[in-house]
């Protein structure tokens, strides 16, 4: 167990993060001060069974009593996410959480984007997969800093893993950080990592009804990228229908159609990144000048 923050080792492995060693990593996310006391305002008083608990159950002769705690199940994750968000804001980092099903072409899109953008922008990548460091190696081959998180049996990245990864990765001031989540359209929707935007990637080799099959993810995302459009002539995929479905679950979602292979539509994606980065740098006078 990590004595700094109490995190269990479990199955999670973060490159360069040795739990068993000397704990020399500094925790820039200070959880102890992140408590929002409004969550706890019911925590101080307990209901004695003599006064009658809120729920109808027979107290009998047991020592049972009711405790109202009113805490969010994801409260802990959200505290870490807020700490990450603070870190990103302080350093002018634009963090994008890329979510999709496995095989939608996330890593290919990412390596292509990095090759096209690295001359202009400072970039860093956190890769999430259940096993192997293959994806981080693919990213490092482009010359950009990347760190792999293996979630083991876990199906998503959480804010705590990302916080630890930031300690190791140390993205540069004013950089764009891509967090490539575990390929899964269900679980990562619920876990805020502190990112500015979730970006959902859907390829045209999948079903056009995925936005309504997995509504939580497309609801949580701000941008949907329809990837592999070069394959449209060969597959049965109704683009208009897909966009309509996405807008049903999320009327405000933006859509970019692109192909990481042919390069079609990539300009819109880069434009979106740069515009979003400029917005995130408002108030960061020194960094904004370079944007």
């Amino acid at each position: 167990m990590c004595t700094v923050c109490g995190c269990g080792e479990g199955e999670t492995r973060i490159e360069g993060h040795g739990h068993s060693s000397d704990h020399s990593h500094s925790h820039s996310h200070d959880h102890a001060h992140e408590h929002d006391h409004s969550h706890h305002h019911h925590g101080e008083h307990t209901h004695d069974y003599g006064q009658g608990p809120a729920h109808a159950h027979a107290p009998g002769l047991s020592q049972s009593r009711m405790v109202q705690i009113e805490q969010d199940i994801l409260g802990k994750n959200n505290e870490y996410a807020n700490a990450n968000r603070g870190y990103f804001a302080e350093h002018g980092i634009l963090a994008l959480n890329l979510v999709s099903s496995p095989g939608s072409g996330k890593t290919t899109l990412l390596t292509r984007s990095i090759d096209d953008l690295k001359a202009e922008l400072s970039l860093a990548v956190i890769e999430g997969d259940q096993q192997t460091a293959n994806d981080a190696e693919r990213i490092r081959a482009t010359g950009v800093k990347a760190l792999q998180i293996n979630t083991g049996k876990g199906c998503h990245l959480d804010a705590h893993m990302v916080g630890h990864a930031l300690d190791g990765l140390k993205p540069e001031e004013g950089s764009v950080l891509f967090i490539e989540n575990v390929g899964n359209l269900v679980c990562p929707a619920a876990f805020d990592l502190g990112e500015a935007h979730k970006v959902a990637i859907l390829s045209v080799t999948e079903g056009e009804d995925k936005p309504i099959k997995y509504p939580d993810m497309f609801h949580a995302a701000d941008l949907m990228m329809l990837n592999k459009t070069d394959l449209l002539p060969y597959v049965n995929f109704d683009v208009d229908k897909c966009i309509e479905y996405a807008r049903r679950v999320n009327p405000g979602i933006k859509v970019i159609q692109l192909s990481a292979t042919s390069g079609e539509g990539l300009d819109s994606w880069y434009q979106w990144i740069k515009a979003t980065r400029q917005v995130s740098l408002i108030g960061h006078s020194a960094l904004a000048a370079s944007a």
Binding site: P53, H55, R65, M66, I69, I73, V249
Partner: peptide, 27 residues
């Protein structure tokens, strides 16, 4: 999330409640 308004059939809906996950109380 993708339901239409039961009255008018529009999809211009803003979800306001129903994404709670909270520990309410304990015995």
């Amino acid at each position: 999330r993708y339901d239409a308004c039961p009255d008018c059939g529009s999809y211009q809906l803003q979800v306001t409640a129903g994404d709670e996950m909270r520990i309410k109380e304990l015995e």
